[in-house]
Computed example of a mutant assay.
Amino acid sequence: MHDLAPICALGGTEPHVDTVAGVTLTENPGLALASVAARRGQEAACRAHLSTLLDGTVPEPGKAVLRDPEASFWMGPDQWMVGAPIATHEDLAAQLKSRFGNTASITDQTDAWVCFDMRGDGIEDVMRLCANIDIDQMQTGDAHRTVIHYMGVYVLRRDPANWLRILGPSSSAKSLHHALVTAMRAAL
């Protein structure tokens, strides 16, 4: 048997945390992710399953449904990302496949994305430097796809309002981290 040890996307055994002038950027390895894409002809049935999972709500374009334990955001027409705590949903994709059956194609995305949580007063100043989104107009539950330092990312406004979740490609975790910390140091 191999003696494997889990590592975070930035390479450590513990999540990396950076703080600049009261704004904290925390690597969040505790998130299980799975994409849900409705199959042709099954769009309504897929939406019904997602609605049941999310207590009657399905994320629309530019929106997220933030609930516990499962949350979701819109990725494209009839496509969503579902997230939940990995401690209770390590097999999230399998759970969703069981629920959705043949109405959707479900793909485990947990290791494909790195998650950074940015919190504190001043996050808007940081995001103005590194992302082409109207951060001042984003409300809790808004979710936008944008680019940070040439990397496609999703930015979600969480609750409370001074909390952003940034999901980027895991293969570019160090580059994304560097871009965010550089913007924090420049803005704050």
Rank of each mutant, 00 (worst) to 15 (best):
T13Q: 08
H49F: 01
P77W: 01
W74K: 11
L50K: 00
T19K: 10
H149K: 00
Q42M: 05
W80D: 07
R119C: 15
L164R: 06
S172E: 05
M81I: 15
S51I: 12
N28C: 15
T24R: 11
G101Y: 09
G101Q: 10
H177E: 13
H144M: 01
H16C: 13
E124Q: 07
C46R: 07
Q109V: 07
L167D: 14
I86R: 03
S171F: 14
L33Y: 09
G62V: 10
I86H: 04
L25D: 06
E14F: 00
M138V: 07
I133M: 03
M184F: 02
E70I: 00
G12W: 05
A21K: 13
D136R: 03
D3L: 10
D18M: 07
S72F: 07
H149T: 00
H89K: 00
R40W: 05
M81K: 12
V153H: 08
I86L: 00
L50F: 13
C8T: 15
R165L: 15
S72M: 09
G168N: 13
A37H: 12
H89N: 07
L66R: 10
A104S: 13
R39A: 07
A173R: 15
E60D: 08
T24I: 11
K97S: 09
L4Q: 00
P77N: 09
G12E: 07
P15Y: 01
E43Q: 14
M127V: 05
D3V: 15
A48Q: 02
A64V: 09
D55F: 03
I166K: 11
A45E: 06
G141E: 14
